[in-house]
């Protein structure tokens, strides 16, 4: 997997400790997994996502990522309702590896309130957190 120096941690995103990124536009939060997660998991071969309209809860699984080695939960950074799902991942799950922040996005969620989003880690704090994980390798 990538070293800390090689990781792409985007300034304009917020992050969970379980390595989901989130970006807010109005009350809609777009969610994916970050460069650390895709690099640690290896090749993603299947993405299991909820349907549009599904209710999701902050910190709870809303889907899963299948890598060649393991299955990992996708945890929702916020509570709300899924309004959009990235259907392209059904045919091309490898987009999560090649473009985790753009083409590899997963769901858009109409969030209930903004407090959960605000509680997510900002990029600097997330980078510090990832550094501690990196050092433990």
């Amino acid at each position: 997997m990538k070293t800390f120096e090689e990781l792409d941690i985007r300034k304009d995103l917020s992050y969970s400790k379980t390595h989901e990124w989130a970006k807010k536009a109005g009350s809609v939060v777009c969610v994916g997994v970050d460069d650390y997660a895709q690099s640690a998991l290896g090749d993603i071969v299947y993405v299991e996502l909820p349907s549009v309209g599904a209710a999701v809860n902050a910190g709870a699984a809303f889907g899963s990522l299948e890598s060649t080695k393991a299955v990992s939960d996708l945890n929702s950074p916020v509570t709300g309702k899924v309004t959009k799902v990235n259907d392209a991942l059904a045919d091309a799950p490898e987009l999560v590896n090649s473009s985790p922040y753009e083409e590899g996005w997963m769901v858009e969620i109409e969030a209930e309130g903004g407090a959960e989003f605000d509680a997510l880690l900002k990029s600097d704090a997330y980078a510090e957190y990832v550094k501690t994980l990196d050092a433990s390798h």
Binding site: G42, D43, T68
Partner: peptide, 9 residues
């Protein structure tokens, strides 16, 4: 486990 090429390839 794999190289940067990835386990799938």
């Amino acid at each position: 486990l794999w190289y940067p090429t990835g386990g799938v390839k």
